[in-house]
Design a protein around this nucleic acid. Structure first.
Ligand SMILES: [Zn+2]
Ligand SMILES: [Zn+2]
Ligand SMILES: [Zn+2]
Ligand SMILES: [Zn+2]
Lengths: 136, 136
DNA sequence: GGAAGTGGCGTTATATTATTACATACTTTC
DNA sequence: GAAAGTATGTAATAATATAACGCCACTTCC
């Protein structure tokens, strides 16, 4: 949908994206900061500035209900339609998916309302299959 | 969907709900606190505790992408299905709606995934009809 | 009545998340 | 080389949210 070529990342952007990719799940900005202190990071703004760009490039998604960030789950972060997220409140796992039919319905609603849609947040909170089947 | 009888509100809950109803739009917890200082409010917890209950009762909704709260737009706050919100980034207006078909599709996804859904956040950001037609 | 439990409230302090402001450095463009 | 644009570093602060403690009112159970 949003067509971004895979951009050259600056040093800080690459470090932040690496942290998120390695984590394999959501991290808060301050968690990233702590991970990157050994790489010379000293202040939150270094993280937030990189995150702003990475989100703009579509390589990282912001989870509004967690105030956290997660690397896009797609290979090479190819551009894709609006994403939705299922967040397990037990283990913290986040599943990204692309509910095209849902997006289509929401777009129809906005068009009927005359609302110009810029950005859509869809976040499901609950318990993932693994946590249900393995109650610890 | 969620069946809550209209509960008796405590004094603080009534004050907070009144602020949100009067505002006719979203307020942050600290904005509510400032509004209620003349009513004796002194600390954020007084607001947050009331908001927790009001959200639990379904009378107030939390807007995750704004870190703000809004009174339910339904008369008497009758229980209703999962709500979605269209938020105008120009004028701040928030429209609450109940996209039942969207919710149905999302539920189908969660059932297929074995994900036990507890709570759904759907927030659309953009520009409302009025702000489009009256560009200031 | 008294003990124990529950829920709301008030207050202080603190934690967490995010931005403002200003200075420096480097690159691209003309 | 000047100008503009972009990335960076740093300190300070703003904005959002919770922890911890004690008090009071009320209920329930013996
Ligand atoms: Zn993605
Ligand atoms: Zn889980
Ligand atoms: Zn509602
Ligand atoms: Zn508007």
């Amino acid at each position: 949908m949003i067509a971004h070529a895979q951009p050259e990342l600056t040093k800080n952007q690459a470090l932040v994206f690496g942290s998120l990719s390695d984590a394999g799940g959501p991290l808060t900005a301050y968690a990233i900061l702590d991970l990157l202190r050994e790489n010379g990071f000293r202040a939150p703004l270094q993280v937030y500035r990189a995150l702003d760009k990475l989100v703009e490039y579509g390589m990282v998604h912001r989870l509004e209900s967690l105030n956290a960030f997660v690397a896009c789950s797609h290979k090479g972060c190819a551009e894709h339609g609006t994403a939705a997220f299922a967040i397990c409140e037990n283990c913290g796992d986040v599943s990204e998916f692309t509910p095209d039919e849902v997006i289509k319905l929401l777009k129809e609603w906005t068009q009927a309302e005359g609302f110009t849609l810029a950005r859509t947040t869809i976040e499901l909170r609950g318990t993932c299959r693994d946590c249900i089947s393995q109650p610890n």
